[in-house]
Simulated assay, not measured.
Amino acid sequence: MLKDHAKIMHAIAASNEIIGRKKLQKMIYIAKKIDYPFHEKFAFHFYGPYSEELTLRIEELCNMGFLNEVREKKGGYFQYRYTLTESGAEFLNLNEVSMPHLEDCLEHMNSQSARFLELVSTVLYFDNLSKEEVAEKIFTLKSKQRYTEEEINQAYEYITQLKHKARTH
């Protein structure tokens, strides 16, 4: 029953701490798209791929005492920090999750900005389209973000690096 919950806990534990709900959503989505076994369904939303299922699982994990969510006032908005609790760590020790090389990928993603991960996840969301069509979608759907051609190319490069990290080490 809690296998998918354990995978999310494993992802947060592997990252030590994830700052921001948007970043957490993008990291899980990107990991899923590079073939890690996350099963949450994602739909395209204001900030790119978003999963209501993931939001509910995070809430459940916080309510069970397995995840710590700290809400901080940051300028005109609230930011959330996620870490594994001691109970969460004990639960993970008893329910081992095997996702080889995930730590490396998540650590690398966690060092990126939420804005960049939003771009990367959007590129992955439209991966059935040509590079030109993806760029067109980004310029249309993400016009407020003002992404450049260069950033889109960096996103493609980054995806290649992550897929390589996921396969080796």
Rank of each mutant, 00 (worst) to 15 (best):
K23I: 08
T140H: 13
L117P: 02
N95D: 05
L141W: 10
M109T: 00
K22E: 07
N68V: 02
F116S: 06
I19H: 05
E17Y: 00
R71E: 04
T160W: 03
E133S: 11
I18N: 00
F126A: 04
S51R: 03
L106S: 01
A11H: 01
A31N: 00
H108I: 09
A11Y: 01
K163A: 01
L129Y: 09
R57S: 09
Y82F: 12
L67G: 04
L124I: 01
E118P: 02
H45M: 05
H169P: 10
F38G: 08
V120W: 08
F78M: 06
G48E: 03
K26T: 07
E150Q: 12
I152K: 07
R71A: 12
Y156G: 03
R115Y: 06
T55D: 11
N93G: 13
F78A: 03
C62R: 03
E60V: 10
S111E: 07
I12N: 00
I159N: 06
Y36R: 04
I34H: 00
H5N: 12
E151W: 05
P37M: 12
S51F: 05
Y158N: 11
I152P: 07
F46N: 10
E17M: 11
Y147G: 02
L56M: 03
D127H: 12
N128C: 09
K26W: 06
M9K: 07
T160P: 05
I30H: 05
R167L: 15
H5F: 09
Q112C: 08
Y77P: 13
Y29R: 01
V120C: 06
E133Y: 08
E103H: 02
Y36T: 06
A31Y: 05
K23P: 08
Y36A: 03
F66T: 06
C105G: 09
E107F: 15
L129K: 11
C62V: 14
I138M: 11
T168D: 10
F126T: 11
Y36N: 05
R57K: 14
E60F: 04
Y29S: 07
E53F: 01
E132N: 14
G48C: 02
Q79P: 00
L94Q: 12
L67D: 05
N16M: 14
D127P: 13
N68E: 15
K163C: 14
R57L: 15
R81C: 07
K32N: 12
L84D: 14
P49Q: 06
E72G: 12
V134H: 13
T83A: 14
Y47S: 02
F116G: 01
L141M: 12
A43H: 14
A31T: 03
E72D: 03
E132F: 13
F66Q: 04
E136C: 15
K144I: 04
S111L: 12
E72S: 02
K41W: 11
T83R: 09
